[in-house]
Simulated scan of single mutants.
Amino acid sequence: MTKVLITGGAGFIGSFLAHKLVANGDKVIVVDDLSMGRLENLTDIKDEIVFYKHTVCDEQFMHDLLLKGNFDYIYYLAAVSSVADSVVRPWYTHLVNQESVVNTLEFIRTNHLPIKKFLFTSSAAVYGNTADFPKTENSHVDPLTPYAIDKYASERYTVDYGRLYDIPTVAVRFFNVYGPRQNPNSEYSGVLSIVTKCLKENKPFTLYGDGSQTRDFIYVEDVVDALIKISTETDELTVYNIANGDETPLIDVIRTYENIAGSKLNIIKKEARLGDISKSRADVSKLKSIGFKPQWSLHDGLTNYWKYYSKN
């Protein structure tokens, strides 16, 4: 039986990955300190996984787990996944978003752990506001916040540990992932989870900027399929964009969602925030070259998200 470790596995994307891997018959071990993840995300598979409520910053715990786990695959999703939070707490977020990653890679190296793949999840935030458009994996990077700096450094460590020490590694850059189980109750949540909550509860939504900022949205189930395909079917030590390859203004997404929900959003406009990116779109040629194709359109994904949130 394939053994898989998911750090951050109680989070939004991590929990979807855990469900998919369990359905595939894998033995899944999840580590999550529940600072951003939620245990209820794993409720219906709780008897089929091993769960540890623990921080990845605890070196001894992680070392013991890695040594005894005999993992085939490691999906490293644990992160303080908030640009704004990293500006407020740069050192703490650095410990989670970079130090813990390098420590894990170093332990794998020094103990010659025979893993099949270590996959690190980075972010489109590494591109910043560079002129290259759309963003290819070889585009210039301009990380504008501690979050983006740590993500970029950690993906470089991941790929270069592979090249220097013959460890099978790969990194991915998430663009704007959305779907069920996104936590809408944090000020650092993804924009669509906050829009969903505001629509459902008829609360005002704060729009930073004029809404013309574009994003490349991808549904969470497509993301999980891409992660599994990249980790199990590729050998290249590299970085992949994970996105749809589309560019949609945020205000257009909101209007589409209003039509699906059958209600209008009460929008309060404020100045754009420091570090926010104005235009974002991925070149996904590399992802397509390995045979991946997203299955969810934005309209279908939003429809499914609204159905889920309406029931839960």
Rank of each mutant, 00 (worst) to 15 (best):
T2Y: 15
L5M: 00
T7F: 12
F12N: 12
F12V: 14
S15A: 13
F16N: 13
A18V: 14
L21D: 03
N24C: 11
I29M: 10
L34H: 01
E40T: 04
L42H: 08
L42T: 09
T43E: 15
D47K: 15
K53M: 13
H54P: 00
C57R: 13
D58H: 00
D58Y: 02
F61I: 10
M62T: 04
L67H: 08
N70W: 05
F71I: 03
D72K: 05
Y73I: 05
Y76I: 03
A78N: 09
S81E: 11
S86Q: 11
V87L: 14
V96N: 00
E99Y: 11
V101I: 00
V102M: 04
L105G: 07
E106F: 11
R109D: 12
T110D: 12
L113N: 10
P114M: 14
K117D: 06
K117H: 09
A125N: 15
P134E: 15
K135C: 02
V141A: 01
L144Y: 08
Y152C: 08
T158F: 13
L164E: 09
A171H: 06
P180E: 15
R181I: 00
R181T: 02
P184Y: 02
E187Y: 10
L192A: 03
L199Q: 12
L199N: 13
E201D: 15
N202H: 06
Q213C: 03
T214C: 02
R215L: 15
L227I: 00
T232W: 02
T234S: 04
V239I: 15
I242Q: 08
T248H: 08
P249N: 05
Y257H: 11
E258M: 12
N259Q: 13
I260M: 13
I260K: 02
A261F: 04
G262R: 12
S263I: 03
I268G: 05
K269N: 08
K270I: 07
K270T: 09
I277K: 13
S278W: 07
S278F: 14
K288M: 06
F292A: 11
L298R: 09
H299V: 09
D300C: 10
N304W: 10
N304P: 01
K307R: 14
S310A: 04
K311I: 11
N312I: 14
